[in-house]
Amino acid sequence: MTRTAEKFLALLEIVNRLRAPDGCPWDQKQTPQTFKQYLVEETHELLEAINDDDPSHICEELGDLLFQVIFLNNLYQEKNLFTLFDVIDSISAKMIRRHPHVFGNQTVESEQELHRQWQSIKSQENARKEQPRHTLGSIPKSLPALRRAQRVADRVAREGFDWPNLSGAVGKAGEEFQELREALSSGNREQIQEELGDLLFALAVVARKADIDGEEALHDATNKFTTRFLSLEKRMLDQGKRFADLTPDALLDAWQRNKTEPQSSPEND
């Protein structure tokens, strides 16, 4: 047995011990519904570690996520619904089945052909399960809204429902922005929300057409704003000022000047 296998089995025993009658009271009371929030949190912590490109942090967060997966599996295994063997066997068979160009004798000439092959195999799987093929059925509704929008736009584009070029998508976003302006003028909150949603979706389509990950782009923009805001806040505190003390024009001027000056790292102060 390899050291990795030994460590994996030891982790399984740790989870079993935590769930045992004489184990941890907190772990004993968990259910799939109560535990799923921690799975989401750990996933986001891993994503943040990857964004920071910190190998030791990534290693730690991967361990946390692995524990979450094993623990969640245990909750179902205790009910004799399935085992970890079933989980591993299922994903192994699926990956081999969906990669005939790797594990079989098929060949693919392009990424587009690879996508078509993947979707064709999924359709065959659904047919065997007697499940009707639904173009958007496999996209989780629980995804972050922007990422889900871009996934939906990408999926329907594979079916031919797409703008012929980027300018068409940009033009549609312009139309949606004008409709939002009109809704804002009306003061109708429901209409404003609907038009704002339409604009955000249209921008997700623009991101897809431009081959940009909209979720990452928004994270980058938020991080940039956060850095600039904290830098400006620190400078104002050093001068004994508050944002509320400035007029809108003075605040905008301070913001513009702060953008052109070297940025410190106030998060680390």
Rank of each mutant, 00 (worst) to 15 (best):
Q119C: 00
K259Q: 14
G240M: 13
H101D: 07
E13N: 09
D154F: 14
L47R: 01
D86I: 08
K234P: 05
H99G: 02
R158L: 03
V40E: 04
T247E: 12
V15D: 05
A153P: 02
P144L: 15
P100W: 07
L146P: 01
L72W: 06
E190M: 02
E42Q: 10
E267M: 09
S123D: 15
D213R: 12
E13V: 04
F177T: 03
S110K: 07
L237H: 07
K29Y: 00
D211M: 10
L9D: 09
L9A: 13
Q119E: 12
T2C: 06
L218D: 00
S110W: 07
L39A: 06
D213Q: 12
Q117R: 14
C24F: 09
A145P: 04
E78V: 05
H99Q: 05
Q117K: 08
A207I: 03
A49H: 11
V156L: 12
Y38W: 04
D27Y: 02
Q131T: 10
R235S: 09
H134Q: 14
R181G: 00
A210N: 12
T247Q: 11
S90E: 14
K36S: 00
F161C: 09
R181C: 10
L180H: 06
H99C: 02
H57T: 02
E175D: 14
L232G: 01
K36C: 02
D198L: 09
G197K: 15
N51G: 11
L218Q: 05
P248V: 03
M1R: 11
L200D: 02
L72Y: 05
G240I: 03
T107Q: 15
A93G: 13
E267G: 00
E109M: 07
Q77H: 08
L9E: 15
T31M: 07
A202L: 10
N73H: 02
Q239S: 14
H134Y: 06
K224F: 13
R155H: 03
L66R: 01
E6Y: 05
A207E: 04
S138K: 13
P100I: 11
V40T: 10
L143V: 03
S185L: 11
A127G: 00
M95G: 02
N16D: 15
I50T: 10
R235G: 06
R147F: 08
A202M: 11
P140A: 15
F177I: 00
N51P: 01
S138F: 10
E78M: 14
F71T: 01
S231H: 14
E78A: 15
F35P: 05
G240V: 08
M1G: 03
